[in-house]
């Protein structure tokens, strides 16, 4: 069952990611990215990370991507214009890409140790309770720092996006 689920959602994620890169219109790309995030949330569930899966949907799917879609709608961003590529990219792009993928594949095969199979439900450490415990004891300082960071980000966004007063 989890094999089938993994294959389905991995394929969905890859197809959506390709779509993100290939689509001309930003809103199609945004929708594809939401697809990637949704399928990643399912994969997180398979890996026993239920809290992270839900946080993924709430933070990425609900907040970040809604902002993206909102900005695309607000600016009425049209399709992007195709720009002229350099002769070097046109000529050597594909062979270089193939070579790169081959080298990468070789190293992945060589370096990857034999890892255990993932069975859904064998490890359920990712509960909200456990994460909260670790977050507020072991990782308390990073947590506080990151809340300051997000506060600064909010202030920065407000300053950047406010109307010019002159």
């Amino acid at each position: 069952m989890d094999t089938v689920l993994f294959i389905i959602f991995a394929v969905v994620a890859i197809v959506c990611a390709f779509n993100l890169v290939l689509q001309k219109h930003p809103i199609s790309s945004a929708l594809s990215l939401i697809g990637v995030m949704g399928s990643l949330a399912v994969l997180y569930l398979l890996l026993g990370a239920e809290f992270i899966a839900m946080a993924q949907m709430i933070v990425y799917g609900g907040a970040v991507m809604v902002l993206f879609v909102f900005v695309i709608m607000l600016l009425n961003a049209g399709s992007e214009k195709a720009s002229s590529k350099s002769w070097f990219a046109q000529l050597a792009g594909l062979p270089l890409l193939c070579a790169f993928v081959a080298v990468l594949g070789f190293f992945v095969r060589a370096a990857m140790p034999v890892l255990r199979g993932v069975r859904f439900g064998t490890w359920v450490g990712g509960t909200a309770e456990r994460i909260g415990q670790v977050l507020f004891t072991q990782y308390l300082l990073p947590f506080e720092v990151i809340s300051i960071l997000i506060l600064i980000a909010i202030l920065g966004a407000v300053v950047l996006a406010r109307k010019e007063i002159d």
Partner: peptide, 25 residues
């Protein structure tokens, strides 16, 4: 019964904006 039930509800609520936003766009 989902362990993270209320988060699930929040996730659904967060994602359901797209229906309306996409319809409008």
């Amino acid at each position: 019964d989902v362990n993270v039930g209320i988060l699930f509800i929040l996730a659904i609520a967060a994602v359901s904006v797209y229906g309306v936003a996409l319809a409008g766009w």
